[in-house]
Design a protein around this nucleic acid. Structure first.
Lengths: 240, 240
DNA sequence: CGCAGCTTTGAGAATCCTCAACTATTGTGG
DNA sequence: CCACAATAGTTGAGGATTCTCAAAGCTGCG
């Protein structure tokens, strides 16, 4: 039950029924575990990878750098996420996979995942479905980033993180967001300076609390209203 | 060669090798074809679908509406795209699929696609890969929308449309963008008023031409520079 | 013709960015 | 324990970008 891939299997089982045989084959994998310091690039854009990264602990981002040196982060991955499962289907990375905090990952070989994919159609569907959820989150971010104010965007990001963290079994006692304000700025598509003011505004509204530079959600309902957050796109519960 | 799904098969073959048997099974499908007027919602958020929409002609968008009534479009689909292939894996739609122009679509039943998915692992991988490319475009849009100025965003959108249209075999004689400025505003995350000014600025720079409200690319190289456009994320060519 | 939708233009206001200085916290080496 | 450097966060002021509101011009269609 505490195999390296058990958390990932649980993630798949949230949305897909899998035969016992497929489950056992997945759990039988025993990929190497490595630790990475914050800011370490696990994968660089252009690189061809031979394994997918399963997050054992910490927070990981999928980011891109522009010509002026500024970076933008398109997606966030936490414990139990296979942050580049898609690399099994397309091994050429078109973005960086970066450790945003200190973290530990399992490097799961593509060859193993491809073998399981071809052997178990239900597992193939589960892998595909996982990528669909990933894309669903990206689509949501496109609309949120292009349609909402900075205050709403930040609220939305915090709501999503809190919800996903809770679903992953982290954050039992209130979600605290682990990233720096600069990293949050790269997520929300703004500047660190403006993030500082925006967090202050959210704190003044009583939605979040800030202590030692780390923000915690105080009033989830209010934050949801500010960020127009509706968790259905995360597809965590049964389809409604 | 002119079967309903032949264009889609060509799309898959761009990135995936498929057995002759799998190809034939795909081509054997003969889904019903329907015509839709512009602004028609093919799928509404919350709906559970039983078929995927293959675009036979026209332009289709994946959009979302906010509480204030404003709409944002997260993705664009053109001839040959299966615009919600992902619905095979997750049939509950979390967005609207809207005809942006008059268009024709084939409604391909999920049951058929699931059968082929489970029967041919190489086809399953091709379906998955198609969703990965879709997600790659979404990830690119996240970074473009959150990191670039409106002028660059619009340039990027035009470059992407032109490149995809050319790869799909449309637009032999110079890409003309088929959407209204209001629709472009919903794509670029801005207002119609500002789009009008931005297009004028791009036209003044000699990058595009505007005639009768329809924009055409004049200087693709220049537009790429303005939009920081690098087509590799579209994964149209061989992996580099 | 007259209507409806799309586009253009102008002016004022709101949001957000840039630059710069300052404070707080943490880690390092002596 | 202290000095020091490095990283993170805060605050202020001015400016650039973008939005909103409003009005007018254009185009196609019944």
């Amino acid at each position: 039950m505490d195999r390296p891939l058990s958390r990932f299997l649980n993630r798949l089982l949230l949305r897909s029924a899998l035969s016992q045989e497929a489950q056992n084959s997945l759990l039988a994998l025993d990929p190497p575990r490595t630790e990475k310091k914050a800011r370490w690039d696990l994968v660089r854009s252009g690189q061809i990878t031979s394994f997918a990264c399963l997050v054992a602990s910490g927070t990981i981002g999928r980011s891109e750098q522009f010509s002026d040196g500024s970076r933008r982060t398109a997606a966030l991955y936490i414990e139990g996420d296979m942050c580049d499962l898609h690399s099994v289907a397309v091994p050429v990375a078109r973005w960086n996979i970066t450790a945003l905090t200190d973290c530990a990952i399992y490097e799961v070989p593509h060859t193993d995942l491809r073998r399981l994919h071809d052997q178990y159609p239900d597992l193939a569907m589960a892998f595909w479905r996982d990528t669909v959820v990933d894309a669903s989150i990206l689509a949501k971010w496109v609309t949120v980033l292009s349609g909402l104010s900075t205050k709403s965007r930040v609220a939305h990001i915090l709501c999503e993180y809190g919800t996903r963290a809770q679903a992953a079994g982290l954050e039992k006692e209130g979600a605290s967001f682990p990233l720096t304000q600069s990293q949050l700025a790269e997520l929300a598509g703004t500047t660190p300076v403006h993030i500082s003011r925006t967090l202050k505004a959210l704190a003044d509204a009583g939605a979040i609390g800030i202590s030692r530079g780390c923000s915690r959600i105080l009033d989830f309902e209010k934050l949801c209203r500010i960020g127009e957050f509706d968790p259905t796109y995360l597809m965590l519960g049964p389809p409604a």
